[in-house]
Design a protein around this nucleic acid. Sequence first.
DNA 1: TATTAATCGGAATTTTTACTCTGATATGTC
DNA 2: GACATATCAGAGTAAAAATTCCGATTAATA
Lengths: 144, 144
Amino acid sequence: MSIIFSKKCEYGLQAVLYLSSITESAVASADEISGKLRIPKEFVSKILQELTESGMVNSKKGKNGGFFLDKPVNQIKLMDIVQAIDGDSIFRTCVLGFPNCSNEAPCPVHETWSKLSKETFDMLNQETLDQFILKTKKKIQSIS
Amino acid sequence: MSIIFSKKCEYGLQAVLYLSSITESAVASADEISGKLRIPKEFVSKILQELTESGMVNSKKGKNGGFFLDKPVNQIKLMDIVQAIDGDSIFRTCVLGFPNCSNEAPCPVHETWSKLSKETFDMLNQETLDQFILKTKKKIQSIS
DNA sequence: TATTAATCGGAATTTTTACTCTGATATGTC
DNA sequence: GACATATCAGAGTAAAAATTCCGATTAATA
């Protein structure tokens, strides 16, 4: 079974996208997020706690509390979340798993993958959350 | 930690590439492959046994035995090995992990990823092992 | 025929990832 | 102040992936 990002990272990305899609500065509880995205509550709660440590997200305890983005949506990129959870190893290592794959010692698909890897990185690193809001809202609506 | 292919799949790809790089119809023991590729012997042995079941590879027991490709190198594609080990779920599921991501209910990066995903698939599915032989030999030499 | 060197099949183990539980603490509201 | 509803921290559990082990079988060769 192949994966691109760990489940943790997937859920983190989805949760942050969710937070970006609700009215600015609004808080959402783990319970709400879990319900809307259909992902395990305790798990997403734990993930958002971790993202709180990395400064992407902030939280408010107690009644009516929850999580909210700690930066303006035009200052957060999907890559920031990936970086915080899974790191960037996927963009630095060989697709085929060969050691020390580089321009000097390339694997058979090194050149092609380098290009695709870069484009994938750009996909996550060029746009900011605000540019996705409309699409995000639609996608989330389609879930429930 | 993100990955593209499971370790099993990575090792499988490497092992099959190795087999394609040695003189046609020559056999290589798990021990030889493990040594050349610096990957765990027992593990690669197990993986090649599985690929034997899928008909990509064949084996010869007993002294001087080992594994060898069961088809001509111009009839094997990297995707065949990926398919046999990891399947093609990576090319069919959402990068962000959203459920039912499709043209009808796309995630924020659906369009971009569709394109990249297809190109990655092509990378593995367009060329056959014979077209990689030179590069494969060089890469394997660079390891030892 | 004994020895040596392989794969084979299946189970066992280890490690990592995914996910849950619990008890503590904070906070808004009646 | 009591209560309900949150996060928080850390431990605990479950499941999956990675890796190893073992005993059986097979085959070349001395």
